[in-house]
Design a protein around this nucleic acid. Structure first.
Lengths: 222, 222
DNA sequence: ACCCTAACCGGAGGGGCCTCCGCTTTAACT
DNA sequence: AGTTAAAGCGGAGGCCCCTCCGGTTAGGGT
């Protein structure tokens, strides 16, 4: 807030002839610049997690060991910074889905991913209000996030169904709804604990009556 | 923003015995205090209208000729100030309805009030975003405002119907809907002009076929 | 008319926001 | 290896937010 003036930005008035066209799109960041940028993002994530999105930007710059000017050059506004961080986290969540799918049996991957989802939401709980405002103003961002999450979930669920490790009469939308219930639950102190239990419960339900189990234990045996 | 701490507010720890009960509800404000308060409100209204709700509080105090401390004592947060101002304006709008009803024929009163309503919305247009945030967080305030406005409108409409100066097959809800259309129209530069025309148009429609006209000019004549 | 104190005043102070600009570094090109 | 200028750095400076507290004053009580 308090943005105010910013009007009357002096234009530098180049004196030498402008270089014709040696602009290969967006020049790679200089080594020091990208180092600083990463450092800032890492520190910002920590500080925001600690103090909420209203944390002091000067503290972030300080802890990252750069001047405040550097922070502002990389991220012109607080919103920019928060948005980039947020997007990254969601992307990490999506990446985790792929990674889990590659290294574990589908049902384990799904279960594990949902637990991470809870953790991710938990981290956001603290800064709920400011984030709401941010997301309300940036519906495009919101749509992207939603898309990434649903896509990750869908792949995991479909793999688990195909593999026979969870029942086939559900689809990812059902599960998403269950998870969104977790999201919108009131923020009691034991919220995270309970949410984790809920996820296990959900997983048990999903495994019950799954072909693998049903054939391996239920139907074949008698 | 930047609200930050405020945690750890030291409690004064009264040392003298607490006064038993000489608290006649809320002691009247001292003369100077209420003078300053009014001055602040008047100046704040002007400054907010000029710069939007993000205007500098220090400027408001300065222009009102009081110290910043005085401003903060009367209005602990920016939101307090904005809310009080906002509520007052709505109350003024409601008072205007009664006043107009007393001094003009019902249809004129209604027409005039709707024009004022447009002006009132116009004044808020500039600070739309911040106000939205405020109202989103203060749904009680929103409900109050809504109640006052609908009530004012209803009285005016009913009076005009009873008087026969507008048609009787409409009710205030219809008109409110028309007005809310005006409110949610995109904020083009000629918005206010167009809205005023729309209101006239609406008024003409309301008068058409009203008992007074119909008997005086339409049906009786031929 | 005078006293007394609760209530009020106001500005200094500590911290944050963001901009601006002179100095430094990187890396493209000889 | 040497040159050079674009890209990057960072902190001083100007403005604002909000709190705290010593000095001032209104106005009820006598």
């Amino acid at each position: 807030m308090a943005a105010k003036a910013s009007a009357l930005r002096k234009t530098p008035a180049r004196k030498t002839a402008v270089k014709p066209a040696p602009r290969p799109a967006a020049r790679r960041l200089r080594a020091d610049a990208s180092r600083n940028r990463e450092k800032l993002l890492a520190v910002a994530a920590a500080v925001f997690a600690e103090h909420g999105v209203d944390a002091s930007l000067e503290e972030i710059a300080r802890r990252a060991g750069v001047g405040i000017g550097t922070l502002y050059r990389h991220f012109p506004t607080r919103e920019h910074l928060v948005e980039i961080l947020y997007r990254r986290e969601v992307e990490a969540l999506a990446a985790a889905a792929e990674d889990l799918a590659r290294r574990h049996p589908p049902d384990i991957a799904l279960a594990e991913w949902m637990q991470r989802f809870v953790g991710y939401i938990a981290a956001k709980r603290g800064m709920a209000k400011s984030l709401q405002i941010l997301l309300a103003t940036k519906s495009k961002l919101l749509a992207e996030i939603y898309g990434l999450v649903t896509q990750s979930l869908r792949r995991l669920v479909e793999a688990a169904i195909a593999d026979g490790s969870i029942r086939r009469d559900v689809d990812s939308a059902d599960i998403l709804q269950a998870l969104s219930g977790i999201y919108s639950a009131p923020a009691t102190p034991d919220w995270q604990e309970r949410s984790c239990r809920l996820v296990s419960l959900l997983m048990d339900g999903l495994r019950w009556g799954a072909p693998k189990t049903a054939q391996g234990l239920g139907f074949r045996r008698p």
